[in-house]
Amino acid sequence: MKSDITFGQYVEGNSVIHRLDPRVKIVISLVYIVAIFLAKSVTAFILLTVSSAVFVVMTGISPRLILRSMKPLLFIIIFTAVINLFFMTGENPVFEWRFIHIYREGIINACLIVLRIVLLITATSVFLTYTTTPLALTDALEQLLSPLKKLHVPVHEFSMMMTIALRFIPTLIDETQKIINAQTARGADFTSGGLIKRGKALVPILIPLFISAFRRADELATAMECRCYTGGEGRTRMNTLKSKPKDWVFFFCILLLTAGIVLLNIFFPLYTVLK
């Protein structure tokens, strides 16, 4: 049961991108997302597509896996494409029939929007979900947000909560399966009947699940207190994050890329349509 669940989407690997400082990866993805939204012209999109392809190759993750991560968003992608196709007006009509008008600008725009979404998913997959463990992400987030501590935001506590929540997801899934089995063995039926009946059928699963979650939380709190955990103040870490030269190199490359896109938008605005 347990091994069936791929929790998060981290793909084991040892590529340059895998080994980047997770803080840098978070910042890079933000910058790259800004770059994707800044791109307005076909030339800029060509540059983005090529660079994304290079990143995918660098991670060593099969492109098929990245395409698969787009499946859940397929509906949104198609929906936005269709909306743009039919409702974008322009000067070059391609197809007209009664109330349907399709313009060349609409077609290009729809394609670019789809490309934009695909690039967004690829970028976050490549930099974050596929190459960074959830734990590394929360650690990095804690450090990136640490200036907020000055404003009395409990950054450490939030990140500790997130870490614990992540840690317990597989445990709770396991537990849920056990409880479902136990109640099924007593003849519980979750698959027939109307909405209300099905909702009621969940009670014998949810109550034991909540109780055991509270029990676990209580036990964990006691265990942490026994080891003198008091929170973020003066706490050191076993693995401290250190950025190396290659992290900075990567960071500046992305900045250059963004600058390039702005320049392309201005100087080679081939088919600038996206508004």
Partner: peptide, 29 residues
């Protein structure tokens, strides 16, 4: 389902599956 009633299974640590308001209701599930 009829075979689940015929072969009653008590899982490991079955006390964690109790859910009803009273013991009698839970036994009656």
């Amino acid at each position: 389902r009829q075979f689940r009633f015929k072969a009653g299974l008590v899982m490991q640590y079955p006390e964690y599956q109790l859910f009803a308001e009273t013991v009698a209701e839970d036994i009656a599930f």
